[in-house]
Design a protein around this nucleic acid. Structure first.
Length: 272
DNA sequence: CGAACCTCCTGCGGGC
DNA sequence: TGCCCGCAGGAGGTTC
């Protein structure tokens, strides 16, 4: 599932082939994503992409006419550069063909993704973006901010760090991984954790996301590296999906429980 | 306001 | 081997 590192990996992977390119043709094969694909999307034909930015797990393509494309990969989405002559695969829903002959395809089996064309203006004012919390890798996410968010929350710390109003981009995998690195039990009520431990949590959230971005994300097989090497962060996961397996640090069996309707993993010895 | 739960969808793994 | 069932999960929505 694409989390922030996979979205950033995607952004970096497509940027060199897409920025500066004019969109020659847009094909929409399905409109019924999580939100309907913007009917105006086809009017972006002829526009040049001037930038691709990321905010949370959204990708924002800025176009010549100041309109923009807002893309979310949902649970199962991916963006790949293909040869336009390749036949479409099942679940290839949208294709943008560029002047350089590359074709960007939005592929999303579960259709939890989003593909919108926003009119000219600041995309950050769109309702999906305007109430998002700080980026985890920015200065705005810090011990003070996390402590403030936790002080009035009795719910489990894992749910709090997955709350996009507190910090964006920490999905289910990295929430468990960060709490392992911080030595904090996922079930701990947020308001019971000392500021020092929350400061540590901020640092490990940054570290786990950075490490995963450097490893090329957890799920992405990259179009950029022609060797096809997955570059998997999955091999470095300490607890996620490792129920019953020995902790890489102490050997204790990793525990699993559904918390807030999400699979949660931890080491009962390393985390208190 | 927070907290708990629901919903969208398809692929896949487990059970038989 | 094949079929059925239920689960996974981002994030907005609903209800209390």
């Amino acid at each position: 599932m694409p989390e922030l590192p996979e979205v950033e990996t995607t952004r970096r992977g497509i940027e060199p082939y897409v920025v500066g390119q004019k969109i020659r043709e847009i094909v929409i094969r399905r409109h019924d994503l999580r939100q309907p694909v913007s009917p105006t999307l086809v009017t972006a034909e002829g526009q040049r992409v001037t930038a691709i930015d990321r905010r949370s797990k959204y990708l924002i393509f800025t176009l010549d006419d100041a309109s923009s494309l807002l893309v979310h990969l949902g649970m199962s989405g991916s963006l790949r550069l293909d040869n336009p002559h390749e036949p479409f695969k099942k679940h290839d829903h949208i294709a943008l063909t560029f002047a350089n002959g590359k074709q960007l395809r939005f592929h999303d089996p579960r259709r939890f993704g989003i593909f919108l064309h926003l009119p000219a203006g600041d995309p950050m004012e769109h309702s999906l973006l305007q109430s998002l919390g700080p980026e985890p890798l920015s200065e705005d996410f810090n011990a003070k901010a996390l402590a403030a968010a936790c002080s009035k929350r009795t719910s489990a710390i894992k749910l709090v760090i997955m709350d996009a109003k507190v910090v964006v981009g920490v999905g289910n995998i990295y929430a468990s991984e960060a709490l392992f690195r911080a030595g904090i039990l996922p079930q701990t009520p947020a308001n019971k954790i000392s500021k020092a431990r929350l400061a540590r949590l901020v640092e490990v959230i940054r570290a786990v996301l950075t490490d995963s971005i450097e490893a090329g994300g957890t799920t992405l097989r990259d179009f950029l590296h022609s060797d096809g090497k997955p570059g998997y962060f999955a091999q470095r996961l300490n607890v996620y999906n490792r129920q019953g397996k020995p902790c890489r640090k102490c050997g204790t069996a990793i525990c699993h429980e559904v918390l807030g309707q999400r699979a949660t993993y931890w080491c009962p010895k390393c985390q208190r």
